[in-house]
Write a protein that binds this DNA or RNA. Structure first.
Lengths: 109, 109
DNA sequence: CCTTATATTTTGTATTACAAGGTATATTGT
DNA sequence: ACAATATACCTTGTAATACAAAATATAAGG
């Protein structure tokens, strides 16, 4: 059986990344750092494919930007489609959490 | 991108099934029906492999029981190990939900 | 009989987080 | 000058898992 934590991420990582980018435009490496601070550890091999998926599907747009020091950064911004998707996803997430909480608290007949 | 609902289930289905069986010993088909009522649709092709995994790992035990009508049923009960696992999993689940809620509500700096 | 409901199981598929590694640039320490 | 570290992006291959679909089996009801 895989780590529970790994499994829990499936489905919510895209949601979280959309939400983070919605609050503030971000580049990939920064997202990994920020998620770590917030208590969600992901590797770059996880993040970059997600960013590519979200961009391919039109939820994010990317622009290269020179950095004063170090490599140029690819900044991501959320699109209108991305915002709609995020709103819908958050709704589904909350519904799902409610169901799971009902089950684990044995509050059903 | 797959259905969000499908992805959300990964990781929490085992948790939910352990919790359902903890409350009352159950057989497979009954679990599918009960989950449907509670708002979580899963197919048999999803449930039975999970039950096998949970039994193989020692979290559940199974006993065949004759039914007055229809096929015999394989009833599942939670083990001590299963109860410990469930307690730990619920703790992790709650921590994870808290992190996701922080992110989607933009309540961080 | 034939359909429906009950009940378990198996096979194959698509998705996705991750480990591991590769590429590239700037800073810091010795 | 040189090595190590931090920053930053990307790719490849793997393991885990929900699901569709089908196979198997028994009893009840029209």
């Amino acid at each position: 059986m895989a780590e529970l934590d790994t499994q829990l991420k499936k489905g919510t990582l895209e949601l979280c990344i959309l939400a983070l980018v919605q609050k503030e435009r971000k580049y990939g490496y920064d997202l990994v750092e920020q998620l770590k601070v917030l208590g969600m550890i992901i590797t770059e091999g996880t993040l970059y494919p997600i960013l590519i998926r979200l961009r391919t599907d039109g939820y994010l747009v990317a622009t290269w930007e020179e950095s004063e020091q170090g490599r140029p950064r690819k900044y991501y911004e959320i699109t209108e489609k991305g915002t709609q998707m995020l709103t819908e996803s958050i709704k589904q997430w909350k519904e799902y959490v409610a169901i799971v909480n009902t089950i684990i608290s044995h509050k059903y007949t």
